[in-house]
């Protein structure tokens, strides 16, 4: 897959494996650690951000654009990888956005290194048995789209297979790898002890949540906000599900830019 028009593509090496980095736009650098399955093609949410920022999208190992997930076993491995990836992408000390599993890793990065401003979009990382996170790995594959997204057309646009049959087959295999990667990181609950490190996050933080999130209840925004030391804001997006940046790209980007520019 070659880079879409207008995107600068390069690779950085993490644990000896190549990770793709896409960049677009000009202005202050903002990083984006994506939910699974990654960013197989450029997204309207990123396009909108790139009008005011230099948007930097490093691929998390195992998601579209990078491999190397099978080397990552314990939590320390994942955190070290995320710190390396952010640093190698030229994002040290910059603004950082992360969604879902990428949000969990972005929170870890902010707990262990300097981030100027942090945006977490429905991040994994906490688990409260009183209001459990659902189990996407115990949902039939045909119901995954409904679980993650409230906007089937936008979901298909972002993650649907390409029309060419061979390309579609390869795409499905990469999507399977991405699901495995997500499972590798968050099985069975997504709780890898982040609760004990949240207090180390001291930068201003926006918690952005689709109010129709079927994976992680929107009430988790408050649990995150309560644990983070830095000033926090909570914004909910009424029409969005778990993947708010896919479901409501304009509203999500507007909320993010309003926070980052404030």
């Amino acid at each position: 897959m070659s880079a879409p028009t207008g995107i600068d593509e390069r690779t950085v090496e993490i644990n000896g494996q190549a990770c793709r980095v896409w960049e677009k736009g000009s202005g202050p650098r903002v990083g984006y650690l994506s939910p699974a399955p990654g960013v197989p093609r450029w997204q309207p949410f990123l396009e909108r951000l790139s009008e005011r920022r230099r948007v930097v999208v490093p691929s998390i190992p195992g998601l579209f654009g990078a491999t190397g997930h099978r080397q990552l076993d314990d939590t320390a491995d994942w955190i070290a990888m995320a710190l390396d990836l952010v640093e190698a992408s030229g994002l040290r000390g910059q603004e950082l956005i992360g969604g879902s599993i990428g949000g969990m890793l972005a929170a870890e990065v902010a707990a262990f290194s300097e981030v100027s401003k942090l945006v977490l979009v429905a991040p994994y990382g906490l688990y409260d048995p009183e209001e459990p996170v659902s189990d996407p790995f115990a949902s039939p594959p045909q119901q995954q789209a409904q679980l993650y997204s409230e906007n089937p057309a936008a979901f298909l646009e972002a993650f649907g297979p390409p029309p060419d049959e061979d390309a579609a087959q390869e795409f499905m295999l990469l999507a399977y790898r991405a699901s495995e990667t997500a499972a590798r990181l968050v099985w069975p609950f997504g709780d890898r002890g982040l609760r004990k490190r949240l207090h180390r996050i001291t930068c201003p933080t926006l918690l952005l949540w689709g109010s129709r999130d079927r994976v992680i209840p929107a009430s988790y925004a408050k649990r995150f906000a309560d644990g983070i030391t830095g000033p926090t804001r909570i914004r909910s997006l009424e029409t969005a599900g778990h993947l708010a940046a896919i479901d409501a790209p304009e509203a999500a980007a507007a909320a993010v830019l309003e926070f980052l520019d404030a």
Partner: peptide
């Protein structure tokens, strides 16, 4: 239940590739 039959990664990527190709 089909919910419990196919956790991602249980089938190796190589086996999955063999299966679809």
């Amino acid at each position: 239940s089909p919910r419990f039959v196919m956790p991602p990664g249980y089938m190796s990527e190589a086996s999955m590739r063999a299966r679809v190709t």
